[in-house]
C-alpha cells in the first residue's frame, strides 16, 4: 500500500508538471532531434542570423509595455533582457507547480516564500538542461535554437553567463531522466529543509522525505537498468547550488557594471540576500 501511495504521488506531480510547464523535455528532445514533423527551429549562430531570426521567432515579452525602448540597446543587453523575461515566466510556472505539491500550501507562508526564493533557480537550471544539447539551447518555446558558440562569442561578462549551464546540462542529460522523473526531482529540490531563514523546518523535512521515497521508487521503476541513478541525482543537487551561487554573483556584477540594464523586480527580490 505504501508503494501505491508513492506511485500516486509521482503521478500527481507529473500531471501538475505537465500543466505548469510550457515546454516539456519530451517535446524539446523531439524538436532537437527533428522528430516533430513541424518545421525545424530557426538557428541563431551569429549577429546576422540573430537579426534575421527576430522576424521568425516571436517573443512573448514583446507585448509587455516598455519593451520598445529596449530595441535601441546593445545586442547583449537585449538578449539578457529576454533571458530575464523568460526567467520571470519560469518563476511563475514553478510557483504554480510548487502550490500543487501536496502539503506545500499548508506550510507557513514565510517558509513558502523562502523555499521558492532558494529553489526557483535550481529548478530553472534543472529544466533548462532539457532544452540544451552540447551545441546550443532551444529558445522561444522551441521556435529558435541559439548556439553555444554564439553565446560564448558575446562580449564579457555576457559570454560567461550560459557556459556553466551547458557544462552542467551535458552531465545532467547523461542521466537520461524523462519528464516524469524530473517532476518528482524538482519537488524534492523545492522542499529543501536546509534553506536559510526557515521558520518551521520539520514539516518541510517530512514532506521532502516522502518526495525522496517517491523519487527513489520512480527511478527504480522507470530506469531498472540504472541502479545508482538515485544517488547520482542527489549529487547533482550540490552542483545546482554551486551554479546558482555563481549565477547570482554574475547577476550582481552585471547590476553594478551594466548601467543600461534593468534587473526585473521579481528577480531582484529573489537575488537579494540570497547567498
Amino acid at each position: 500500500p505504501e508503494c501505491a501511495d508513492l506511485r500516486a504521488l509521482a503521478k500527481h506531480l507529473y500531471d501538475s508538471y505537465l500543466k505548469s510547464f510550457s515546454l516539456t523535455k519530451a517535446k524539446a528532445r523531439a524538436i532537437l532531434t527533428g522528430k516533430t514533423g513541424e518545421k525545424a527551429p530557426f538557428v541563431i549562430y551569429d549577429m546576422n542570423s540573430l537579426m534575421t531570426g527576430q522576424q521568425f521567432v516571436s517573443y512573448k515579452q514583446n507585448s509587455v509595455p516598455g519593451q520598445g525602448q529596449e530595441q535601441n540597446k546593445e545586442v547583449e543587453i537585449q538578449l539578457f533582457q529576454r533571458c530575464q523575461f523568460r526567467s520571470v515566466e519560469a518563476v511563475r510556472e514553478i510557483t504554480e507547480f510548487a502550490k500543487s505539491i501536496p502539503g506545500f500550501i499548508g506550510l507557513d507562508l514565510n517558509d513558502q516564500v523562502t523555499l521558492l526564493k532558494y529553489g526557483v533557480h535550481e529548478v530553472i537550471f534543472s529544466t533548462l538542461a532539457s532544452l540544451m544539447n552540447k551545441d546550443g539551447v532551444l529558445i522561444s518555446d522551441g521556435q529558435g535554437f541559439m548556439t553555444r558558440e554564439f553565446l560564448k562569442s558575446l562580449r564579457k561578462p555576457f559570454c560567461e553567463l550560459m557556459e556553466p549551464k551547458f557544462e552542467f546540462s551535458v552531465k545532467f542529460n547523461s542521466l537520461e531522466l524523462d519528464d516524469s522523473d524530473l517532476a518528482v526531482f524538482i519537488a524534492v529540490i523545492i522542499l529543501s529543509g536546509d534553506r536559510p531563514g526557515l521558520v518551521n523546518v520539520k514539516p518541510i523535512e517530512d514532506l521532502q522525505d516522502n518526495m525522496l521515497q517517491a523519487l527513489e521508487l520512480q527511478l527504480k521503476m522507470n530506469h531498472p537498468d540504472a541502479p545508482h541513478l538515485f544517488a547520482k541525482l542527489l549529487q547533482k543537487m550540490t552542483d545546482l547550488r554551486q551554479i546558482v551561487t555563481e549565477h547570482v554573483q554574475l547577476l550582481q556584477l552585471l547590476k553594478k557594471t551594466e548601467l543600461e540594464m534593468n534587473i526585473h523586480p521579481l528577480l531582484q527580490e529573489i537575488m537579494k540576500d540570497l547567498y
Binding site: N110, V113, L116, K117, P265, E269, I270
Partner: peptide, 21 residues
C-alpha cells in the same frame, strides 16, 4: 519577509494571475 518579497508573495496567493510587471 512578506514586505521584501511582494511579487513572490502575490504569486503564491493569487492563482495563476499574470504578473504585473
Amino acid at each position: 519577509l512578506k514586505e521584501k518579497h511582494k511579487i513572490l508573495h502575490r504569486l503564491l496567493q493569487n492563482s495563476s494571475s499574470p504578473v504585473d510587471l
